[in-house]
């Protein structure tokens, strides 16, 4: 993939907008320099180039290149299958354990690599945003979109596993966009929040790996939701990744789903999204001064 090849949809969509003298930009202390949605739309191509940069740089720097996209969920899936599936004999909603854990690890890997990349993305690009103005939210967003691209690539292995175990695609797949929306909202919310706080508090760098590890065990990745006691289920579901992981397996493999978890997860994800983006916008104008 070449950095300068812009897909056709983008090409037709990027007719220049009229920017005449009638369009004034006003800079005041309060309005500061936080970009509005129109600024972001104006420079949307930048997001595309940042994603392409991340993908093509990794492609050039690593010998395995794209293979890392599916190795990331595949390797832990193998470990989980051996230890949790075979040795600990954890239940797997009647699915082959390998398929069950890979289907959980796919959305989980999207979240964990998004958050770990995005949270440090801003700190690592101080030389960019202290020199040029652009919507800074693109920097963590680019990490998240790149991880999303990886998730799409790694779903090829999921299809392979389903064929191998003769597992049919569930009709629930029509609800997949809803599940993706929950995962994306939660990831974007936490990614923007953590990237902005990392500028102020360098401690974030050390908290993230720890936090991700804890969260992995709080999510039904290696085990099904059914082993969580009924009375704790809703509290447990406050973590939107519970809904994302359970929902993903439900929509693709047709495993059972507690609809209430989905509801709680959706609300939680929306709250995190709004809070994360608001926090980012609030501190954005001080980035160049404190970074």
């Amino acid at each position: 993939m070449k950095l300068h090849d812009v897909p056709r949809q983008l090409r037709t969509a990027c007719e220049p907008r009229k920017t005449g003298p009638e369009m004034a930009t006003v800079i005041t202390p309060s309005a500061g320099n936080a970009p509005g949605l129109s600024d972001m739309w104006e420079q949307r191509e930048l997001l595309y180039y940042l994603v392409l940069r991340d993908i093509s740089v990794r492609y050039k720097q690593t010998s395995l290149g794209l293979a890392w996209a599916f190795l990331q969920p595949l390797l832990p899936a193998i470990v989980f299958t051996v230890f949790f599936g075979k040795l600990a004999n954890l239940p797997s909603d009647g699915m082959p354990y390998a398929l069950f854990s890979y289907a959980g690890l796919l959305p989980w890997t999207f979240f964990s690599s998004s958050v770990s990349q995005a949270s440090l993305s801003l700190v690592n690009s101080t030389s960019l945003f202290t020199k040029v103005y652009f919507p800074r939210v693109f920097i963590p967003l680019a990490s998240i979109v790149t991880a999303g691209f990886d998730a799409i690539v790694s779903s090829v292995v999921l299809v392979g596993l389903m064929l191998y175990y003769h597992t049919p695609l569930s009709a629930n797949i029509v609800f997949l966009p809803l599940v993706v929306a929950i995962a994306a909202a939660f990831t974007i919310g936490s990614g923007t929040f953590l990237s902005a706080s990392a500028i102020r508090y360098r401690d974030v760098r050390y908290i993230i790996p720890f936090m991700i590890q804890m969260l992995l065990f709080l999510c039904p990745v290696a085990y099904p939701a059914s082993i969580v006691p009924e009375k704790w289920r809703l509290v447990w579901a406050l973590n939107p990744m519970v809904a994302a992981v359970e929902g993903f397996r439900w929509s693709v493999l047709g495993t059972p789903l507690d609809v209430r978890t989905m509801g709680v997860g959706a609300v939680g994800a929306a709250v995190v999204l709004v809070a994360g983006v608001k926090y980012f916008q609030k501190v954005e104008s001080t980035f160049a001064d404190i970074a």
Partner: peptide
């Protein structure tokens, strides 16, 4: 830096008519 919107002013106001490249 203020004119190019890299950093925000503490007081006052700037009005720019047109795209700014820096």
């Amino acid at each position: 830096k203020i004119l190019s919107r890299i950093t925000a002013p503490t007081s006052g106001r700037v009005e720019l008519h047109g795209r700014v490249g820096s």
